[in-house]
Simulated assay, not measured.
Amino acid sequence: MADHAGQNTVLTAGFAQIPKGTTLYEVSTMVGCVLIIDADRDVICDASFSFVMDKTSEFLVSLLLGKSVKDGCMQEITPAVQERFLAPGQGAVLQAIRAAVERYHEKKW
C-alpha cells in the first residue's frame, strides 16, 4: 500500500455505467475509477478500478501512472486505453476516468 502522508495528494473518483448486453454487465453494472493525484504536478501517482479481477485493474493502473491530468489530458489517456485495453466496457472505463479527472478540476484549489 502506498503511503501518501506528507505529500500534496488528492483522491478523486468517477463512475460510469457498463453497457447492458455485455458479459461485464452481468457481473457489475458500474465501473469505478479512483485516482490519487499529485496536486503539485497534476500527475496521477496511483489509481484503482472496481473490477472483480485484479489483473484488469492492475493493467489499467499501469496505463495511467505518471499521466498528466491537466486540461486536455484525455487526448493522451484515451488513445492509450483504446489501443491497449481491448475488453468489454472500454467506453465505461474511459467515462469513469474522465469523471474522476473532471471532479479533480472542479475542486482544485
Rank of each mutant, 00 (worst) to 15 (best):
M1K: 06
M1P: 04
A2M: 11
A2Q: 07
A2P: 05
A2D: 09
D3N: 13
D3L: 08
H4E: 11
H4K: 14
H4V: 15
A5V: 12
G6L: 04
N8G: 06
T9A: 10
T9D: 01
T9E: 03
T12P: 02
T12H: 03
A13M: 10
A13W: 01
G14P: 04
G14R: 04
F15D: 03
F15Q: 07
A16E: 09
Q17G: 13
Q17E: 15
I18C: 05
P19A: 13
K20Y: 05
T22R: 03
T22D: 05
T23E: 14
L24Q: 05
L24Y: 02
E26G: 06
V27C: 15
V27T: 15
V27D: 15
S28P: 04
S28M: 10
T29N: 15
T29S: 14
G32C: 06
V34P: 02
L35V: 04
I36T: 15
I36D: 08
I36K: 13
I37Y: 03
I37A: 04
D38R: 06
D38S: 11
A39K: 05
A39T: 09
A39Y: 01
D40C: 07
D40G: 12
R41K: 15
V43M: 03
V43H: 01
C45W: 00
C45T: 13
D46W: 02
S48K: 14
S50N: 04
S50C: 07
F51R: 00
F51L: 03
F51N: 00
M53D: 12
D54Q: 11
K55D: 07
K55G: 03
K55A: 12
K55F: 10
T56D: 00
T56W: 00
S57M: 04
S57D: 08
E58C: 13
E58W: 08
L60H: 12
V61E: 02
V61I: 09
S62E: 11
S62R: 06
L64A: 04
L65N: 05
L65I: 15
L65T: 08
L65S: 06
G66M: 09
K67Y: 05
K67E: 15
K67W: 06
K67V: 10
S68Q: 02
S68I: 03
K70L: 12
C73V: 01
C73Q: 02
C73K: 00
C73D: 02
M74E: 14
Q75P: 05
E76M: 13
E76C: 12
E76L: 12
I77C: 08
I77F: 10
I77H: 06
I77G: 07
T78N: 14
T78A: 15
T78D: 15
P79L: 08
P79I: 07
P79Q: 10
P79H: 08
A80P: 01
A80H: 02
V81K: 01
E83N: 14
F85P: 04
F85G: 07
L86D: 11
P88G: 09
P88C: 09
G89D: 01
Q90E: 05
Q90N: 09
G91C: 07
G91D: 11
G91E: 10
V93Q: 05
Q95D: 14
Q95C: 12
A96D: 00
R98M: 08
A100H: 05
V101T: 04
V101P: 01
E102P: 00
R103P: 00
H105N: 10
H105I: 13
E106W: 10
E106V: 14
K107I: 11
K108E: 13
K108Y: 13
K108S: 14
K108L: 14
W109I: 12
W109T: 11
